[in-house]
């Protein structure tokens, strides 16, 4: 699969025409990207700190995880959609940026961790799961999303 061809296509697409020409539209989409990041970060931290027994201790962790997971799904869809639009404005530049690839790799790993590890594990009764496994998963989950955010910010300074 030719990845560069995809970036060339994105750079010349109608999406890029809009993102490059209309600064106001780009800014609005960027706000949605930031709001989605806030939602994702907030939901991840809330769920994981509940698993660690730091906050919302009077609410069953199953309830907190179920509610936060719904918003993690919404935030990820919004992040990816707005992210593709924003990337279209600087597609070729991003292709040559190693921190962009670090962010994409950690994002893909984060999505894998959420849907293949965290969610299937937390579908079980939390009382039946080894408490140390719960703690490790909570810390690893926060770590992964920290790395995604930090790599994303690194793009701007590279």
């Amino acid at each position: 699969m030719d990845v560069f061809a995809f970036f060339e296509w994105l750079d010349a697409s109608w999406l890029a025409s809009i993102s490059k020409a209309y600064g106001g539209t780009f800014a609005v989409v960027q706000v949605f990207h930031l709001l989605a990041m806030l939602t994702l970060g907030g939901m991840v931290i809330t769920g994981d700190l509940r698993l660690l027994g730091v906050l919302l201790k009077d609410v069953p962790s199953e309830v907190v995880i179920d509610n936060t997971q719904k918003w993690i799904n919404v935030a990820l869809v919004a992040l990816i959609a707005s992210g593709i639009f924003m990337a279209s404005a600087v597609a070729i530049k991003l292709y040559y940026n190693s921190f962009f690839w670090a962010k994409m790799t950690s994002l893909v790993f984060g999505i894998f961790f959420v849907y293949a590890i965290r969610r299937p594990l937390l579908r079980y009764d939390h009382g039946s799961i080894n408490p140390w496994t719960l703690r490790l998963v909570a810390v690893a989950s926060m770590t992964i999303w920290f790395v995604v955010a930090a790599s994303g910010r690194w793009i701007g300074f590279s």
């Binding site: 961790f113 590890i117 965290r118 299937p120 594990l121 079980y124 039946s128 799961i129 080894n130 140390w132 496994t133 490790l136 998963v137 810390v139 690893a140 770590t143 992964i144």
Partner: peptide
């Protein structure tokens, strides 16, 4: 659950 716990724990430690 036991298998999932082992995979989740190992991967988390690695991360």
């Amino acid at each position: 659950l036991a298998t999932l716990e082992k995979i989740a724990g190992g991967l988390s430690l690695l991360v």
